[in-house]
């Protein structure tokens, strides 16, 4: 029972963690991409379609990454080349993504999906208590863990990561130092989009292996809140992602318990819990103005035009 709950929590948390990690990198470079929800849903539909057409869930993962990545380039062109308002462009990306995915996925509605099979790691998965939970998971889960540590290393231990953080904190100075601000930001946006696409692929290949319109159900926005919650640090994204995932699963179990126990808790109240939790967490994290100011990349959301 306990193991089963833990497994569902992991499945529910993984897309949040991956999407938030990608956004974290994008935001560290000083770009606020509010189109996370749109990129995720495009990744979800691309992954499902690729898996259906090729019969392979692994190619589906690739399709999801490409879908989210290519879609994010649209955001890049507008905000980085044409210096459009990042908030508005992000919203545009979400609106377009939700519409386009609905249109593209129309013929897949109701089709049985192809589930990504778990990879059982020998020996490790025999460890009592947590072995089966942690070491007989699907590829996307392993990728999420690798991403957490990979991004941590990249941002804080590598030269390119340092440059990227410099751009996010002061793009004027970084430009004066000869760092190519726009190119680095393009890469950061692309990486964020690819991660969002991977998160979407997890939804349509693992979490609920089928295509449902609007299946992201606000997870992109929750992942955005998660980045603030984690104060732009990858390890805290992992912790926060699991916290949010646990709230989501907790409300499902509470609904079942209430039903079987005959207690009349409105299901809508429980469904609203993840959103309420997000607001509460944002209040707790943001109320100290000074720490927020220290943690937020200083150039976040500000347009940059190279003056040569």
């Amino acid at each position: 029972m306990f193991e089963a709950i833990l497994l569902t929590v992991i499945t529910a948390s993984t897309p949040l963690v991956i999407a938030a990690l990608g956004e974290l990198v994008t935001e560290r470079s000083g770009v606020l991409n509010l189109g996370l929800e749109g990129m995720m849903i495009m990744g979800a539909v691309a992954a499902f379609a690729t898996a259906q057409l090729t019969g392979s869930a692994y190619l589906g993962i690739l399709g999801g990454i490409l879908g989210g990545g290519i879609f994010s380039l649209l955001f890049g062109v507008l905000t980085l080349t044409l210096v459009a308002n990042q908030v508005a462009t992000g919203l545009a990306l979400t609106i377009l993504g939700l519409g386009l995915s609905g249109q593209l996925g129309e013929s897949f509605v109701g089709m049985p999906g192809i589930r990504l099979q778990p990879i059982v790691i020998p020996l490790l998965s025999d460890i009592p208590f947590f072995g089966r939970v942690l070491f007989s998971q699907d590829l996307i889960f392993y990728m999420s863990v690798a991403l957490v540590f990979g991004i941590s290393w990249f941002l804080f231990k590598s030269r390119t990561g340092l440059k990227m953080r410099a751009i996010g904190d002061n793009h004027g100075s970084a430009h004066a130092l000869g760092i190519n601000v726009v190119r680095t930001r393009y890469l950061a946006v692309l990486f964020g989009g690819a991660c969002a696409g991977l998160a979407g692929a997890q939804l349509s290949l693992v979490y609920t292996p089928q295509w449902v319109e609007n299946m992201t159900a606000g997870r992109g926005w929750i992942a955005l809140a998660l980045v603030v919650f984690a104060s732009w640090r990858p390890l805290r994204v992992l912790a926060g992602g699991y916290l949010f995932g646990a709230v989501g699963i907790g409300q499902l179990h509470a609904q079942l318990l209430a039903q079987s126990g005959g207690i009349a808790i409105p299901s809508q109240l429980l469904s609203a819990l993840p959103y309420v939790a997000t607001i509460v967490v944002l209040i707790i994290i943001s109320h100290n103005r000074r720490t927020t100011l220290i943690n937020t990349p200083a150039s976040l959301g500000k347009p940059f035009v190279p003056d040569r």
Binding site: A92, L96, G99
Partner: peptide, 18 residues
């Protein structure tokens, strides 16, 4: 499908911003 209208709406916003 009437989702076409969502696509049009998204496109309009993109082009306006550019």
């Amino acid at each position: 499908s009437d989702k076409v209208s969502r696509v049009f709406q998204g496109l309009i916003l993109f082009f306006v911003l550019s």
